[in-house]
Amino acid sequence: MAEEYRCPADDVLNCSTMTDRATDAAMWASVADTLRRKVLPQLTDAEARASTIQLIAMAIYAGRRGNDPQRRRLDELSNVLGASAGQDVLRSCIAVLADPYHRAHAPLRELLEEHLDDDLAGEVVLLKALENLLPDG
C-alpha cells in the first residue's frame, strides 16, 4: 500500500482540501476578476465595455449558480402533484394548471413561481449587467 501523503508541518495551504485541479468556482472568479481589473480599464469603446461587463456578470453567475436544480425541482413538483404526477411531470403540471378545480392547482402554481423566483434571485447580476452596471463582489 502506498504511503499516505502528509503535508509538511509548515505548509500554509490546507492540504486536506487541495487537489491538483482548480475548482470551477475559482476559475470563474479569476475570469471575472481579470476582466474587471486588467481588461475593462483599458477599454474605451462603448460596445466593448458593455460586452465585457456582461461577460464579468456571466462569469460571476457561472461561478455561483451551483448544481442544476432541475432534478430536485421535478421531485418537488411530483410531491405536490401526488397521484397526478404520471411519467411526464412537466406535462402533468400543465394539465393540472389547466384545471382550476384540481386540488393541486394552487399549490402547484405557487411552487412553480417559487422556482422562478429562485432563478431570478441568482440572475440579478445578469440583469444589472444589461443596464451596464458592473457587478459587485
Partner: peptide, 25 residues
C-alpha cells in the same frame, strides 16, 4: 455573445415573472 445568454435566461425569467403577476391564480 453574453447578451444573448442573458436575454435567453435572466430576461426570459424576468418577463415570465411579470407575466405571471398579471395572470391570476
Amino acid at each position: 455573445s453574453p447578451a444573448k445568454m442573458i436575454a435567453g435566461t435572466a430576461v426570459f425569467h424576468d418577463v415570465l415573472r411579470r407575466l405571471m403577476n398579471i395572470v391570476p391564480v
